[in-house]
Computed example of a mutant assay.
Amino acid sequence: MDELQADIYEWGESLVHFHLPRWDELPELDLYMDQVITLVDRYLTPVIRTDKHTLLTSSMVNNYVKKGMIPPPEKKRYTRRHVAFLVAITLLKQVLTIQEIKDGILFQGRVVGIRNAYNLFCEEQEKAVQHVCLQAMGKPEQTETEKIAVEYLAVKAATASFANKLLVEKVIEMESQYLEKGEHND
């Protein structure tokens, strides 16, 4: 069991400093579809296993446009705003329905504006991932001391849901590998 614990610790340690690009870190230049997909993939592969979950495809992007989740591209080019939406959608679709994501994005955008909503989402997602990484590392949990404003409850809960799902998947995967090793050693 010590080997399993060490592997889980190592996984937590590898992601404890996970970073999502803030609005001002996203490309200023407009991008083509394949560039957007590559960029979103680079941002999210540390936390979404591409062998289990498809990150983003051109048909997904086109569907998000059709559903009104992201604005249509201009002359087949995508802006920083598109990339921000796609990062959030790709993470959130791991734990929410498309309609819930659309409603949540529209709500947060109206409350604090798209730029601030995106930055808040990134900050909360990083905190949630860090929290589960610390759990994996056996570090004491830090509890919230501030009251959470009602308009931020959905963001906090969704990001925590994704992070917890990430941890559960990793622990189950490692436990299965550990059991397989144990069976072969007997």
Rank of each mutant, 00 (worst) to 15 (best):
F121T: 04
L106G: 01
E124K: 06
T45H: 04
L106Q: 07
D51L: 09
N62T: 07
L134E: 06
C122G: 04
P71Q: 12
A117G: 01
K127M: 14
L55R: 08
N62S: 15
V111D: 10
T50Y: 08
V65Q: 14
A84W: 14
A136G: 08
G113L: 00
N62M: 02
Y64A: 12
T45M: 05
Y78D: 02
E74N: 12
D41N: 11
F107P: 01
R49T: 02
F121E: 01
C133N: 13
L86I: 11
M60P: 12
R115H: 11
I98Y: 15
H82V: 04
R49Q: 04
I48P: 00
V112A: 13
A128G: 02
L39W: 15
M60H: 11
K66V: 06
I105P: 06
H53C: 07
T79K: 00
E123Y: 01
G68C: 06
I101L: 04
G68S: 05
D41V: 02
P46C: 13
M137G: 07
N62Y: 03
D51Q: 10
D41A: 02
F85W: 07
V83R: 01
S58Y: 03
G138P: 15
D41K: 08
V95P: 15
V112T: 13
Q108C: 08
P46E: 07
D103P: 11
G138A: 13
E74Q: 11
S59Y: 13
V111P: 12
P72R: 07
H82P: 06
L56G: 08
Q130C: 01
L92H: 08
I114G: 05
S59G: 09
Q125C: 15
N62I: 05
K52V: 10
K76C: 10
V47H: 12
E123P: 02
K76V: 10
V87G: 04
Q108A: 09
I101M: 00
E124C: 11
A88E: 11
L92F: 03
R49Y: 01
T57K: 07
N63Q: 14
